[in-house]
Amino acid sequence: MLTIKDLSVSYGAIHAIHNVSMEVKDGEIVSLIGANGAGKTTILHTITGLKKANSGSILYDGTDLQKMDPSKIIQLKMAHVPEGRHIFPDMTVVENLEMGAFIIKNKDEIKQKEKEIFERFPRLKERRKQLAGTLSGGEQQMLAVGRALMSSPKMLLMDEPSMGLSPLLVKDIFNIIKEVHKQGITVLLVEQNANMALAISDRAYVLETGNITITGNARELLNDERVKKAYLGQ
């Protein structure tokens, strides 16, 4: 579904990503784990077009994403949940969801989608008229996921959904990801919380200072000595 080949990205003279190749197949949950500054977010931003690559290719369902404007990517049914809960704080929960359905012009369809999201996240329904900035961290993350689902994506890019959340909420969020996946949405998950990410993923890539060092089946990686030592604190 998504194939990245020999991708290199730099910020000025600093090379952030060196020749990274990875692949996400239809129906998988793939996680990309790594420490702070390894370049995980850079890869996601390059996929969505927020950052331009130096070389390499990104193919999504046969379309080259490199020449695309970030706002066009969502029309290919790929939704991005940005890092750090990028919601619209001064807009209400409903307005946030409506912005997520920006590319849908049909009003009834938007209403229908909204209903689905509220069914999945009853907490958001309770707070539908509330300003998004006044929600708790976990609710904001739910809203960010809900907003991404408004466009009926086939693939979801999640950037550090566990960031700044309590362990209990992290569990909730990962359950949500699992549920979303069950409905047939492919997920590319970028995480620092390697333990949680590996537990729900099919496959994983480990990113270290811009290079992919380890890759394989998520269960195997959970028992991999190097991964254990570096990321799982065991």
């Binding site: 940005p82 919601i87 619209f88 704080p89 912005m99 920006f102 907003r147």
Partner: peptide, 21 residues
């Protein structure tokens, strides 16, 4: 107007929602 407001609040999220910033 609402779209413009969304861009003001968070342009990354706006772009991710399909808004041509």
């Amino acid at each position: 107007g609402r779209t413009v407001k969304a861009i003001r609040e968070d342009y990354i999220a706006a772009a991710a929602s399909g808004i041509n910033v």
